[in-house]
Structure formats: structure tokens, C-alpha cells
Amino acid sequence: MKLIAIQKLLNATILTGKELLDHLEVKMICGSDLISDVLSFTKERSLLLTGLTNPQIIRAAEMIDLCGIVFVRGKRPGDDVIRMARERKIPLLVTELPLFESCGVLYNAGLPGCSGLSLATGGDKSVAAPRPS
């Protein structure tokens, strides 16, 4: 899915990288507030949804070639972070939706997570659905 379609689904504000949104194809989504988890589990051409707005999230994005970052809960990074992202051509968006809802919207729209796991058969790997308690 193109990043511009994701921006519309999340009704997100564009902080930088507007010219890239029509071209960048997002393959999967990672939602996390832990940098090492992002580094460990995110694959190439992923979009990160996070509440972290410090400069290290841009550093991490640079290391793993993320398609872009969506800041959730209406959190906006400082100008230094936006400048770092602009220099590295990493689009930044902000949505008012919380992390869970944002991920849900994109999952419903057909975007998978980075694990390759699926509760139903048909994913790379399937896991047993938990029983309701």
C-alpha cells in the first residue's frame, strides 16, 4: 500500500516527506515504543507506528531503512528530529489515534505485521488462537 493511502486512512498530518508519499510502497507495519524491538523485528519497507519522538527513533529508522514513521496519540517530535528525518528522506506523519487503534485500522486495511505469524492458516507461520478465558 502506498504511504499516501496510509496517511489518509489515519487522517495523519505530514511533518516531512510529502513528496515521497506517492512513491513509497509499504509492505508491513511495526507498532512499538521499544527501539531494540523495532531493530530486531522490523523488516525492510516497513512503516513504524510509535509514541517515541526522540532523535534516536530517526537513527534507528536509518539503520533499518524504514519507509517512514507515524507518531501516534498526536505526539509531535521537535524541529531537530524533523530536520534529521528530512536530511535522511524519512517521511514523518502524526495521527491523533493511539497505537492500538492505528495498528487496527491498517491491519483491517490488509497490511500485515512484521512477524509473519498469523492466527489463521495462510500466514508464513500460524499460531494457535488463544482460548477465551
Binding site: 521499544l34 527501539i35 531494540s36 524491538d37 531493530l39 517515541l52 526522540n54 534516536q56
Partner: peptide, 12 residues
């Protein structure tokens, strides 16, 4: 507070 400390550094 900056998102580190997941305990995944060396395993990563």
C-alpha cells in the same frame, strides 16, 4: 524513557 532497555541489545 528514550525507548532503550528492552533487553534485546546483545541478543540482537
Amino acid at each position: 524513557a528514550m525507548g532503550f532497555g528492552a533487553g534485546m541489545g546483545l541478543p540482537n
